[in-house]
Design a protein around this nucleic acid. Structure first.
Lengths: 215, 215
DNA sequence: TAAAAAATGTGACAAATGTTACTTTAGTTC
DNA sequence: GAACTAAAGTAACATTTGTCACATTTTTTA
């Protein structure tokens, strides 16, 4: 595992020491749910390794993707909710084996005034998540499913650092709140345009794909 | 005007004094843009009177509504962006004559460690705005336009404390990123159901309307 | 008050997406 | 390898939303 100061270069050494001394490091297997909708949050989450997925569950169990969290990032929901012991409005799940750090709430409040770097880190986290949500809103409000699919695949590929996407069309449909048939149709079109190739449970993005639809 | 301590009961008296001494109170006429997309933010906004509207502008000038801000609330975007002198990603506009307080950034940072009540107020602001965005995402992701329209009208009515809505169908269409004809159609249906009555530039919500579609 | 402008109504149609009911294909298990 | 199962393909159709082209009504302005 990378040392913490490499993972969180923004944080001052004294703070990193406190973090190491006081928070619990946990290894999570892939596809485990860390936080459920309605659950009360007792500690803040920092991602050390792996990838977490933040999503909203709909009535039928569909997992509508909001965004991914990468090493060095913190779960904004947990930061906001933890300090007030509020119920989470979203689900958090590991998409691969991940290592997370759980910081007790009381310390967070202290650190806020004690460490300027923590204060800025938290603000930066809020800002980034806000922007992520704005981007998401833009997409679902202004774009059609074909563009949203491309955006989704790009994001997935980036979060998993791979051009190979191992998901069924059904899973993708769930995350975009669409239906399998629609996603299959759109993927076929992209395949015809030679932007990707399809096989069972895998989508292989070609180089041209990433040139498509900037932002 | 209401005294500040009534408007912001969460904030401790010493802080309120500092706010009064150091921030600029400004009266804004209706329909004035306070912050534009791309603009750098030099101070945080607190709403003292009136209503502000936070929206995203699309290519054609449509004003896609995100949420309203009421007296006692703060603009989360300004809180986040101000501390880093970042460019705003949204527009802020007064929907009626409003009074706002502009707090210089440097003070915000100081207050954060000096006044617990400020710290909690800011966190609470983030939390509320986050939830507002989540609700919005739920609506545009999971609901059809008819439900979104009802939700929109309810929110408008609540923000303006009136059952009379003075907007053209075109304006509503813009805020929902739809088209006038669609909104007219849906409004006609609601009129036929006797949930509201229509006339030029006004929609009058009837009592039954508010019973419709809880949440 | 006539003319212009803005808002709304309307019907026909197009496009995007969702749904249904299958078939086909690929992988897994017995 | 036969039987089963999950994933993907497909075609026909329904629904929702968007678009176009005008007509009608209401309000404003010259």
């Amino acid at each position: 595992m990378q040392p913490l100061y490499k993972m969180f270069p923004q944080l001052e050494p004294a703070l990193l020491q406190e973090i190491e001394a006081n928070s619990i490091l946990k290894t999570i297997p892939a596809d485990e749910i860390l936080i459920r909708t309605g659950q009360y949050i007792k500690s803040a989450l920092l991602v050390v390794e792996g990838t977490l997925k933040i999503f909203r569950e709909n009535e039928d169990g569909g997992e509508f993707l909001m965004y991914y969290l990468q090493p060095g990032e913190a779960c904004a929901i947990s930061l906001v909710c933890a300090s007030k012991m509020e119920a989470s409005k979203v689900m958090v799940k590991s998409v691969e084996e991940s290592v997370i750090m759980m910081v007790p709430i009381q310390l967070m409040d202290q650190w806020m005034s004690k460490y300027k770097s923590w204060y800025y880190y938290v603000l930066e986290t809020y800002r980034n998540r806000f922007e992520e949500l704005l981007l998401l809103i833009d997409h679902i409000a202004f774009r059609n499913m074909d563009e949203r699919l491309i955006f989704y695949l790009k994001r997935y590929s980036k979060a998993h650092k791979s051009n190979q996407i191992n998901l069924s069309h059904q899973q993708i449909a769930d995350e975009l709140n669409s239906s399998r048939e629609v996603i299959s149709r759109l993927l076929k079109k992209l395949e015809q345009k030679k932007l990707l190739s399809l096989s069972r449970n895998t989508i292989e993005l070609k180089d041209d794909f990433h040139k498509e639809l900037m932002n």
